[in-house]
Nucleic acid binder design. Structure first.
Lengths: 376, 376
DNA sequence: ATGAAAGCGCTAACAT
DNA sequence: ATGTTAGCGCTTTCAT
């Protein structure tokens, strides 16, 4: 029988938000009980719970995340640190994270890092437990001191697509990925295979990200080549900024070589796009005159019929988020290092080399796909 | 109840986080003064301020966002509602938002909406002032009742790439965009121009998003056609799901028409990709046999040499965020409707029609660009 | 200009 | 099982 906020008078009085005490009063119970109902405590009689639920309904009560967070000591939101948010592979992972976290009742705060300085800035802020209940780091190597600070702060952290000793992480085997891509090309009969990617980078430093996947993929590339008895030719390994444009430039050089490659393994699909356009600009048909394979399997790869090494992007984010939630519940995650599968997706951008170079009679059906040929 | 499950390390005396009272004690002032320094109040003597600053340094104090938020009544974080986060145009806008908000000291909480139900769910949650200080809605039409609830809750809201009466919004003129694209094609001499896009959609409803931009672009398309004295042929206007694959399918049909179009205006760059691959699959060269223009100017458009109508994506997000910050400071934003410019970027995917259909001797240099031709 | 004290709305420890 | 109460760490009057 509570007065519906002075209904009689015409002017709507400021409809003061109901607080937990209002609900308690309305239900005729203590605030503790309401809190218990809110947090799903088992120590509440079904009948009481129902009374509280009704009161909540009547008062249109909405709990304050803020107050709950303060009281609890940690908010119901997690921070996620990503480098270059707009890159397709990154945003796909992010979507996976957000989806899972949302279902688990956590808000996702996104920190985008585009310079080492931003990385340092955000990494510092995230050691504050009142800012986020936990942290998910995607594809971004952290400095040793930053990892230490996170640990010292007791901050629950999971890594996605990066590794660091002692941290729960969801990754793929990039070395194996490099091997898979290269072997796919070898199986088609290629013998002169180039690699186009980012600079190998060292370890993360004050002024460097130190991304590691390229280096690993190159290791796999070399390994596959060596296993096939083909000497690694350093002039076929090129690196430049992480962009299609840069990849295109590198490809241009490669194609001008006296003995140009018949196939190119691009470090990621975006760079593969650059390779494709450079090939086109040079009038070299793909896969007729050049085979191209990328990495990641982003959406455009499908549209362009790009062969690639697929990794479960969205799922990696989802898995990482799920593991963080486990951590936040006080459970432990195991194994610390979770590996997701890699798979070669052969589309139309790879085929046997122009003139039967070596053996291998093209095991593939030589599938070809739709694409774009502006200069036809 | 001593320590929660921390990281692997065993020992480590709980380094109790310094609170504002610690700083006050260390500086020999009251907590109120520390708070004033923290919040840049002018009512603090310079000398006192310095003492406090030093104390903060000594105690390595970090203010609690949570406590400050509770006390203030609203957190230093803003919510951003986006549909289909992984779409390139959306994530570009999001990056702009995050950048500006970060600089202004706000955290960005991202809510990704992929179904009307998710829209409703999140829109409801966001009427809680203790959850976010303000809301930025990107490219997502809200139901009337949802807008009303936001207003009733006194929630500061800005819109980006969507319109709603009474709300501050940063948009482009899609009608004009449709006109620009179509006119570009007309100027090249095309007379048979098709449109490929999303279903026009009505207004947002319980089970529908009601995206509006397609409808507007079609209006512009018709307007340009009519202005050029060309009758609008309904069979040339096709729509399907927002994906390159669907666009490809629609294009396939279009190209099989007895009197097929010589040019296609795709609702967005992603769909233009689909158009391109369908053209390729049909063995029709672009732009030799078919001209294609998209909308947005996402990164891949550059790599593929796709002509398009550019809109400032990242900037739209940045502008929206800047306006929200103004709102949060209690200032008013004006004009309510902020319009960003549109511009045709002619790349290699548009050229005069195959056989000089009508007049216009191709004002453009007929620029062509790199692309991908897997079937050559 | 600065200190003291009253909340902000909730959780959790402690009673009962 | 449920009520009571003491904080969580800060901002903000209100005095002084």
């Amino acid at each position: 029988m509570t007065d519906r906020q002075g209904a009689a008078d015409g002017q709507r009085a400021a409809p003061r938000r109901a607080r937990i005490a209002d609900v308690a009063a309305d239900a005729g119970v203590g605030v503790g009980t309401v809190s218990r109902v809110l947090n799903g405590s088992p120590h509440v009689r079904a009948a009481t719970r129902q009374r509280v639920l009704d009161a909540i309904e009547r008062t249109s009560y909405r709990p304050s995340q803020l107050a709950a967070g303060l009281s609890r000591g940690t908010p119901r939101s997690v921070a996620i640190l990503v480098p270059f948010l707009t890159r397709p592979s990154v945003v796909a992972r992010l979507a996976g994270v957000i989806e899972v976290l949302g279902v688990e009742g956590y808000d996702t705060i996104v920190f985008n890092v585009e310079t080492p300085a931003q990385r340092d800035h955000h990494a510092y802020l995230l050691t504050e437990r009142h800012r986020a209940a936990g942290v998910i780091v995607i594809s971004l190597p952290l400095l040793r001191e930053q990892r230490a600070a996170l640990i010292a702060a007791g901050m629950p952290v999971v890594l996605v697509d990066v590794a660091a000793p002692g941290f729960p992480r969801t990754v793929v085997d990039d070395v194996r990925g490099g091997e898979l891509a290269t072997r796919h090309l070898l199986d088609l009969g290629h013998r002169r295979i180039a690699f186009v990617g980012d600079p190998r980078g060292g370890r993360p430093a004050r002024d460097e990200f130190g991304f590691r996947s390229t280096a690993d993929r190159i290791i796999g590339y070399r390994r596959a080549l060596t296993a096939a008895g083909i000497p690694v030719d350093p002039t076929l390994i090129r690196s430049g900024p992480h962009s299609a444009a840069a990849a295109a430039e590198l490809t241009r050089d490669l194609l001008r070589l006296p003995d140009p490659p018949t196939a190119i393994f691009a470090n990621c699909d975006t760079q593969a796009l650059g390779v494709l356009s450079a090939a086109d600009a040079a009038g070299i048909p793909v896969p007729g005159g050049l085979s191209v394979i990328g990495f990641d399997d982003i959406e455009t790869a499908v549209h362009l019929g790009l062969s690639t090494v697929r990794q479960p992007l969205r799922e990696s984010g989802a898995r990482g988020a799920a593991r963080l939630c486990r951590l936040l519940r006080g459970e432990t995650v195991t194994p610390l290092r979770e590996e997701l599968p890699l798979e070669v997706i052969a589309r139309g951008s790879t085929a046997p080399p122009p003139s039967p170079a070596a053996g291998a009679p093209a095991p593939d059906g030589g599938g070809r796909r739709a694409g774009y040929q502006p200069n036809a």
